[in-house]
Simulated assay, not measured.
Amino acid sequence: MTVRVNGRVVTPTGVIRQGCVEWDGDRITAVAEYPSVRDGHWILPGFVDMHTHGGGGHTFTTGDADEARAAADFHLTHGTTTLLASLVSAPFPLMRTATEAFAPLVEEGVLAGVHFEGPYLSAARCGAQNPEYLRDPSTDELTELIELGRGAIRMVTLAPERDGALEAIKLLTAQRVVAAVGHTDATYEQTRAAVAAGASVGTHLFNGMRPVHHREPGPVVALLDAPTVICELVADGVHLHDGMLTFVTATAGPDRAALITDAMAAAGMPDGEYELGGQAVTVADGVARLARDGAIAGSTLTMDAALRHAVNAGIPIADAARMVATTPARAIGLGDRVGALQVGLRADLVVLDDDLNVVRVLRGGSWVE
């Protein structure tokens, strides 16, 4: 049975001011003008969060399946219809346990995949990653995880200057796993070598990276300059100045800039004491920081809040919609399934009011309670 929702429809090519989206079962069957509509709510594609550690008081970082399901449910109420479960640096046994626990959730469709942010990261740029667990990339470990996950491993973030990093990137890309560059002290040349080896994502650009210098551009410029790389941005006003958010969007374009939450369990929760990767985190005024040194420890962001922040910073809503859905979907290899209001894709959409607050969420053709 065909079902329709009317309103201001945001498509990959722009806004249909008087439009509708139709679906039958779990697939979009039509996106069209609907002249009888007068304004109405905004209709955007379901959000795709390619980097989140938890939310609603629940975490992905312990490898617990019940926690993961609850965190995914929390983000779904904020419009995120597709997400990766991001872990932080951990001992290999925990990486194995998480892979085993999350693989069934990927098969079920609760998660779109697993993202390992670490442990193959720079000690100098570890940020809120636990320095005890950092180590050089291991192709043996990665091979075992990929085989164990049966397609569940979707992305791995590593520092290209570490011994064995280029071999790891080549292995990942050969296995259709996204290799991302992050938490890195790499030079411009080392970063370009990683991109040449197949790295295609910059993990939360600027954060956990050697800063830009006019005599040593570092990883930021190398990633921005690479046409094959999609750059993650945390649009919360804490990780990035709004001027930097709009600069990257203008420089890379919305087809190469993806908004992420980098959220931890404290997203949607009161200020207080939390934990991330075995480290104490204090959340005050909605900002999460490590108790030991004050380093930013993920965020309390949701994707609807990231969208609002980007639009308020001056990014047009059509561009912002690409950045919260179309671009991240393509970055993790799911652009042919989700991420746009387009015929044939999964019927995922978010209905927003004039202030871009979530009114309703549709996932796979069913309204979320």
Rank of each mutant, 00 (worst) to 15 (best):
D319S: 15
D319F: 10
L362Y: 07
P227A: 05
A65W: 00
E232S: 06
A179T: 08
E189R: 13
E189L: 07
E216L: 08
A306T: 11
S366Q: 15
T157I: 09
G344P: 12
I332N: 00
S36T: 15
V106N: 04
E22Y: 02
D336G: 09
H75A: 05
R360G: 05
P35T: 13
R210E: 02
A305T: 15
A305G: 04
A32F: 07
M95P: 08
A186E: 07
P137V: 11
R8F: 12
V9H: 01
Q342G: 01
E107A: 15
P35H: 11
V238Y: 04
A112I: 09
T191V: 13
A347L: 14
M1Q: 12
D73P: 00
G40R: 08
H53A: 02
A98M: 10
N207I: 03
D26F: 03
G277M: 01
R125T: 10
A280C: 06
T203D: 06
A70Y: 06
E167N: 11
L349K: 08
H115G: 10
G344I: 14
T173I: 11
L205H: 04
G335N: 02
A165H: 10
G109A: 12
P270S: 05
G19L: 02
M155Y: 09
V221G: 09
V48R: 07
G57D: 11
P12I: 11
L94T: 14
A258Q: 03
P35L: 13
D354I: 05
R363Y: 10
A318P: 04
A179C: 01
V361A: 06
M209H: 09
V48C: 14
V229P: 03
V21A: 01
L356S: 00
G333L: 09
L223G: 00
M244Q: 13
A65Y: 02
A297L: 02
N207W: 00
A65Q: 10
N207V: 01
R192S: 04
I317H: 12
G268T: 00
R322H: 10
Y133V: 02
L362T: 02
R38E: 14
R125S: 02
H239R: 11
G40P: 07
T61A: 08
N357F: 13
G149H: 05
L171M: 14
V21N: 01
E369H: 14
D319G: 00
A295H: 06
A186P: 04
E232A: 01
V201E: 06
E117S: 07
L301Q: 10
I16K: 06
V181F: 05
M244R: 00
G25D: 11
E67C: 11
P119T: 15
E107L: 11
G198E: 07
T2Y: 00
V114C: 11
A71Q: 10
P254T: 07
R69L: 13
I315S: 00
S36D: 15
A340E: 00
V221I: 15
G113M: 07
L233H: 01
L352E: 03
D262T: 10
H183L: 00
R322A: 14
L87Y: 10
